[in-house]
Amino acid sequence: NKFNKEMRNAYWEILHLPNLNEEQKNAFIQSLYDDPSQSANLLAEAKKLNDAQA
């Protein structure tokens, strides 16, 4: 299933973003579980936030 793979990839990438705190990571990961079809968008948002907090 495409979403499972996308979701897993997004999950791991978000988990390893160095500039997000636990609360931010948890919020993105919760959103992933709530709507796996948004994995790519959530990952993009997480990366933007990560870069902004660098």
Rank of each mutant, 00 (worst) to 15 (best):
L32R: 00
A27R: 10
N41T: 09
W12L: 01
N26L: 08
N26P: 02
F28H: 02
L17P: 00
A54H: 08
Q24A: 07
W12E: 03
E23A: 10
E45N: 10
N19G: 06
Q24V: 05
N41I: 11
E23W: 13
D34W: 09
A44T: 10
A54L: 08
K25N: 02
D51N: 09
Q53M: 10
L49I: 05
E22I: 07
S31H: 08
M7P: 01
E45Q: 14
N21W: 11
R8E: 14
A44M: 14
N50L: 01
N41S: 10
K5G: 03
N1G: 04
N19K: 09
K25F: 13
P18K: 11
E23P: 10
D34K: 14
E45K: 15
A40D: 03
I14E: 00
P36G: 11
Q30G: 06
H16M: 07
A27T: 07
A54Q: 12
N4G: 07
A52H: 10
I14F: 05
L20R: 00
Q53T: 09
A27G: 06
S31E: 08
N1A: 02
A46I: 02
K2G: 14
N4S: 04
K47M: 05
N41Y: 14
L20S: 00
M7G: 01
L49R: 08
L15N: 05
A46V: 03
K2W: 15
Q30M: 14
P36W: 05
K5D: 09
K5N: 02
N26G: 08
L20I: 11
P36K: 04
N19A: 09
Q53G: 09
K25G: 02
W12N: 03
A44G: 09
D35N: 09
Q38E: 11
S31K: 13
L42S: 06
Q30A: 13
Q24T: 08
Q38D: 07
Q38W: 08
L15D: 01
L17T: 02
A27K: 10
Q53I: 11
N4I: 04
A44Y: 11
A10T: 08
E22S: 14
N19R: 08
L17Y: 04
A10D: 01
S39E: 00
Q38R: 11
E22H: 13
N9P: 01
Y33L: 09
P18D: 10
D34R: 14
Y33P: 03
E45H: 13
R8Y: 15
Q53P: 07
E23R: 14
K5S: 01
K5M: 01
L43S: 10
I29K: 13
F3L: 12
K2V: 08
A52D: 07
A44L: 10
Q24H: 07
A54W: 14
L43N: 03
